[in-house]
């Protein structure tokens, strides 16, 4: 189902934030070019908070041990781990997340 989880203004460009979506923690990222992506909150490697990671247009780097994940697929880059992703879009400034 689709959840309206709030305004995109809550996520500064280039950063991520964790949202509580009905008890599920989801990391939502807002790239500098305006794209949004959503992934599981914790890195599968050692549980690092992905929303605190460095990002670019395609990927996020876990802040604990630099594991890199592709936003589009959740696939690990140079690592065996991979993460779950969620469909997400912005409509009139509101983030709409599919779970």
């Amino acid at each position: 189902m689709e959840h309206a989880i709030g305004s995109i203004a809550q996520i500064p460009p280039g950063e991520g934030r964790n949202f509580d979506v009905g008890g599920l923690r989801v990391a939502v990222f807002h790239t500098r070019s305006g794209k949004v992506f959503a992934t599981q909150a914790d890195c599968p490697h050692r549980g690092g908070p992905l929303a605190d990671g460095l990002t670019d247009e395609d990927s996020v780097v876990c802040p604990l041990h630099d594991r890199v994940y592709a936003f589009a697929t959740g696939a690990g880059i140079g690592t065996d781990c991979s993460i779950a992703t969620y469909a997400v879009r912005v409509d009139q400034g509101t983030i709409l997340l599919q779970t």
Partner: peptide, 13 residues
């Protein structure tokens, strides 16, 4: 400096 700079979890509206 930024929105929710120190939030570790934001409740969905």
């Amino acid at each position: 400096k930024t929105a929710h700079q120190f939030a570790s979890l934001i409740p969905a509206e």
